[in-house]
Structures are given as structure tokens and as C-alpha cells.
Deep mutational scan, measured.
Amino acid sequence: EETYEVDGEEQLKKVEKMLRDRNLDVEVEIHNGKFVIRAK
């Protein structure tokens, strides 16, 4: 499992696309105004 923490939606979209391109399962949560992306 990998976890990424990003600020802002633009970064979120980039990271999310990169992970989905690797066929990973992606979950996004918001913690303290930051996006936390978990990939399995």
C-alpha cells in the first residue's frame, strides 16, 4: 500500500491518474484540508 499527501485538486488529479494508470485501487480522503491518497 502506498500513501500520498497532496495539497490542492490539481496535484490530486495528477497523482490519482498516475496510480490508476498502474491499475491500482485508489481511495481519497481529506485530512486537515489535505488530500490523502491511498493506493493498493
Rank of each mutant, 00 (worst) to 15 (best):
Y4N: 02
E16F: 11
E2F: 12
D7T: 10
R38P: 11
I30L: 08
E27G: 02
L12A: 14
D21R: 02
L12S: 06
K17V: 05
E16R: 06
K13E: 08
R22S: 04
M18R: 05
V6S: 01
E5T: 12
D21W: 03
V26H: 04
A39T: 12
E1S: 11
Y4K: 03
E27F: 13
G8K: 05
E16Y: 11
R22V: 03
G33D: 08
E10Q: 08
K13Y: 06
I37L: 01
G8V: 08
V15Y: 11
F35D: 14
R22G: 04
H31M: 12
E10L: 06
V15T: 04
D25V: 14
E2R: 08
L19G: 01
E5Y: 14
K40N: 08
G33P: 12
E9W: 15
D21E: 12
R38V: 12
T3E: 10
A39V: 15
E29D: 05
Q11V: 09
E27W: 14
F35N: 14
R20E: 05
K40T: 11
T3P: 02
V6P: 02
D21G: 06
H31R: 13
K17D: 05
Y4T: 01
N32G: 06
V36Q: 06
L19Q: 01
I37S: 06
K13I: 09
K13S: 07
K13A: 11
D21H: 04
N23L: 09
D25Y: 12
Q11P: 03
N32K: 05
E1C: 15
K14G: 03
K13F: 03
E2D: 07
R38D: 11
V28P: 00
V28A: 01
A39K: 01
D21L: 06
Y4G: 02
E2A: 06
G8S: 15
F35S: 14
K34H: 14
E16N: 04
N23Q: 07
G33Q: 00
D25R: 11
R22D: 03
K40W: 09
T3G: 12
L24C: 15
E9A: 07
L12W: 09
N23P: 01
A39R: 00
E5R: 05
V28L: 03
V26S: 02
Y4S: 01
L12G: 02
E1R: 06
K17A: 10
N23F: 11
E5S: 06
Y4Q: 02
G8M: 09
G8I: 08
E2P: 04
L12M: 13
A39M: 10
D25H: 14
F35G: 14
K14F: 11
E1Q: 10
E2M: 12
Y4I: 05
V26R: 01
K14P: 01
R38E: 10
D7F: 13
L24A: 04
K13M: 08
V36I: 15
V26M: 10
H31V: 15
G8A: 06
E5M: 10
E5D: 05
L12D: 03
N32Q: 00
V36Y: 04
H31T: 08
E1G: 11
A39W: 08
E2L: 12
E1T: 10
V26A: 04
K34E: 10
I30C: 15
L19I: 03
K40F: 08
L12K: 07
E16S: 07
D25L: 13
Q11N: 10
V36M: 04
N32I: 00
V26T: 05
K17W: 00
I37W: 00
R38F: 06
M18W: 11
V26Q: 01
A39Q: 01
D21Y: 02
K34G: 14
G8P: 02
I37M: 00
L19P: 03
G8L: 09
E1M: 12
L24E: 02
V36W: 02
T3A: 06
K34V: 07
F35Y: 11
E10F: 03
K13W: 06
I37F: 00
N23M: 10
D21Q: 05
K40E: 03
K34I: 12
D25K: 11
K40Q: 08
R22K: 08
M18D: 05
N32F: 02
K14N: 07
E27N: 06
E9T: 07
N23K: 06
